[in-house]
Design a protein around this nucleic acid. Sequence first.
DNA 1: CTGTTAGCGCTTTCAA
DNA 2: TTGAAAGCGCTAACAG
Lengths: 368, 368
Amino acid sequence: MAQTDGKWQLNELAAPTGVAGERVQRRVTITDIARQAGVSKTAVSFAFNTPGRLSAETAERILDVARQLGYAPNPIARSLNTRRTNAIGVIVPQDISEAFSNLFFGQLVSGIGQVCNNEGMSLMIIPPMRGSLLEATYAALIDGCIVTGLEPEDEVVRVLRQRNLPFVMVDADAPEHIACVKIDDFDGAHQALQHLLRLGHREVAIVSFESFSGHVDQYTGTLKHRFDGFRLALKEAGLSLSSRSIHCLETKCSQAGGVEVFNRLMQLVPRPTAVVALSDTIAFGIIDATQQHGLSVPGHLSVVGFDDLEASRLLRPSLTTVRQPIREKGLRAAEMLMDAVRRRFTLPRHVVLPVELVVRKSTVRMEG
Amino acid sequence: MAQTDGKWQLNELAAPTGVAGERVQRRVTITDIARQAGVSKTAVSFAFNTPGRLSAETAERILDVARQLGYAPNPIARSLNTRRTNAIGVIVPQDISEAFSNLFFGQLVSGIGQVCNNEGMSLMIIPPMRGSLLEATYAALIDGCIVTGLEPEDEVVRVLRQRNLPFVMVDADAPEHIACVKIDDFDGAHQALQHLLRLGHREVAIVSFESFSGHVDQYTGTLKHRFDGFRLALKEAGLSLSSRSIHCLETKCSQAGGVEVFNRLMQLVPRPTAVVALSDTIAFGIIDATQQHGLSVPGHLSVVGFDDLEASRLLRPSLTTVRQPIREKGLRAAEMLMDAVRRRFTLPRHVVLPVELVVRKSTVRMEG
DNA sequence: CTGTTAGCGCTTTCAA
DNA sequence: TTGAAAGCGCTAACAG
């Protein structure tokens, strides 16, 4: 019950000597151990890091003293010397909670985590700090990182260079000299829309996630490639993005975004009979809203997604969608990153993963 | 195309002076800036941290030089002084990829992330390092952490104390002096099983996630509380855990675990008409497997889950389950943690969140 | 096998 | 307003 002091303390702090009433909380350092054990700091360091360089008894004695004094090496001091943190980061331009609200991110991180496991690394999620992703990038205690949701022109990339941190971009339109893992967005989008058009749909809406570029014609990166794919599919059907029957909307990349966009979809004239969402999460929201309104998918509205999240197969109707290998994307990016962190020789710097249309039950042939 | 040198380099490294051919890659330090700007290191430090203490022109000049030389302060060195890392951790006893394969974890992290956002913190996911969670705990560059999946007796807790790191446990049977956020497991389990029994089911299986204790009677913590709840529900129906018609199984806490356990369920005699899974993720697997085998939920098998993941409502049949406020759990834990990290005065150290049975379509009254 | 001696790069009194 | 100097706690040559 040493509760009496230190109201702010969340947990009892182990007094260095184990003596209850002790007030001074100076952390036990390597110097204390050295003194107590009658050896040099070097010896203590060796005892922890390369015990082989010490006689068994010396090492044992040192470790004993350390145990008694409750000593734990300060990892920050260690990092300052070794220049290693044993952690890699994932930079995300949104808040963490927002990022994880899209199941996509969890799967990506899961893939990255597999590599962390093999390499003995921890994983730092790095969101903007007080609104500034740059500040967060400056402060991150990591050995390298994976950058998501940013273009190569971003200042963050500049800071990473400045900090001399290896990094790999994901889903970016990166130049040759920047490592990057992406998917064939063009092909995915093309297949998705082609599928709908071949089913006879002509009134179709394309629901994109929010871009900062504003208009479809100014899209860059992933979005641009996907819309190029859409353009081709439309052209093949004698249509174009500016056709009266083709609508382009943007919404938040979340389930809530899908719900929100549903209402706008219902206002459109002519009302679309099919929609392709640029993210499964958005599709989930659209389907949910549709059903809440007593309408049926695909009866009243065919829906195609993009991603093929694990949940997409389980939904009813199961979701027709463009599958991309999300976990592998994370895994490949993390592998490339670790090659750089470990300074292993590597060549391939750009990886483009294939996508595949998975036709399930959320789309149906247009009647009439 | 400075590709020629440094095969191991993942990205071009910005040469300190911007000169292409430069080979020496010594990082620019505060000393370089001081020298170049003709001021002391102190001044440079001030220019970055408390520019107010310098004349506007001096500060500007220093920053200019820093910009030109591509200087970025070394956050590790800074941390060594300030004793802050601006990151909190989440300790997980499994691999990262395994942890995130249960949607529960993503939602928990999402809640924690909300606090990170408010407090300007990054979030470190800390899995075992080379098999050792202890080693990972020793090495983590964090200001405090949230501990999941561990009991208070765990060595990790001892190390956290040794390192003087504030921490909060989640879902643990923690003693008074250890901060903890949990739910009313007893009530949740009781309601879940009571629901099934009231629907007339008598042949029921309880599918738990893997424990290390082995037998039901040796369960501790969360699992113990839940089984106490089950015991009460059974008792109210004149049954007990050892009744012939009640089966207890364990499986991995994942969808795959649910699929795996389904096969064992089908072998049981008498074959259960209902099952309560201790995790929605497991329930997903059971439902999926059931349907794959051409059987119907709840027609052939009623299923109750535990968690109420976001996806549980979207599934068909939508899942009857015990809702626990997962995000809030993470949020509350993170708030308590940050109170300790920021040394704010706090009192409540134990939080027990309520649960609630959500009856949906995966359970039905027993026929006959 | 063990200890001495420099740092690692930055912050922060304390003086000027 | 600015600077000198003493650390923060540890690692790693280099001697002995």
